[in-house]
Design a binder for these strands. Sequence first.
DNA 1: GGATTTCTCCCCACTTTTCCCCACAAGTGG
DNA 2: CCACTTGTGGGGAAAAGTGGGGAGAAATCC
Lengths: 147, 147
Amino acid sequence: MAGFKGQAEYSIDSKGRIAIPAKMRNALNPEAKSTFTITRGFERCIFLYPLDTWLGIESEISALNTYNRQARDFVRSILMWAEEMVLDAQGRISIPKPLAEFAGITDKGLVIGALDHVEIWNPDSFAAHMNEQADDYETLAERVMGL
Amino acid sequence: MAGFKGQAEYSIDSKGRIAIPAKMRNALNPEAKSTFTITRGFERCIFLYPLDTWLGIESEISALNTYNRQARDFVRSILMWAEEMVLDAQGRISIPKPLAEFAGITDKGLVIGALDHVEIWNPDSFAAHMNEQADDYETLAERVMGL
DNA sequence: GGATTTCTCCCCACTTTTCCCCACAAGTGG
DNA sequence: CCACTTGTGGGGAAAAGTGGGGAGAAATCC
């Protein structure tokens, strides 16, 4: 099963909706029933997990030891932002206000595929984030993929 | 199975399409179903992986630990440019706009076979890249291939 | 508690892009 | 020399992205 790939800069309409690229919609497993769980991501962006993938994450989370304070805080941090959203007939989802604020998203959103999930960024934040990254692509590839 | 070889300078039409040389199309494994995954390469060029080869890369990527920030950034850097493209009836693929911009490709493309993948360069960039390379062919060979 | 306002979501309409298809010219091989 | 493949170009139907109206639910305010 091919994962999510690609990028697209789409506009957010006055109702806070953003289109999900057709290529990514088509990569959705039928079991996901056009549903994404939207939550905060790492770095200042939003994560979208297909429903079927999300269920796996939920069971990982529920396996955590809740007698550990750090685990509790982690669970709170993920779940307080999470929301199940179904694509509308035009293939869009509406971004919950708290998440839009968190990611600093107003009128433009950069949608990128990241294999098991989709990310939505404020285009400017994303450019800034990539600039902060000290190593260039070639170095990163060598380090991460090993040699 | 024979790998990709050879070079060809082809034109990009007004719709951003470029032909893949017949020799390389014939080198495609039937399993690839005439499909390439197109993504950014190292240096300023575009990589084309046959679908079957790409799936192997994708599973390597998915094995990375995404709780590590460098790994996350690497996954973003490679996948945001990636796109699955099927050859049209004329044996062409259309180059996604972001990639064309990245590689500085406008009206001409230099297509090079590189064993497990195909590369597309702006012909001028490629010439410049080869000039930057201080060592000549013989020296390079000695260093890379050992003794 | 009821009326008003706000918000959410479903639906329809318009514009742009994508991609499928056909056509032609140049090159290749028998 | 002719048939066939290969590279190049473009028209047109279908899909994708964008915007907004309006019914119903939820929240708010008197």
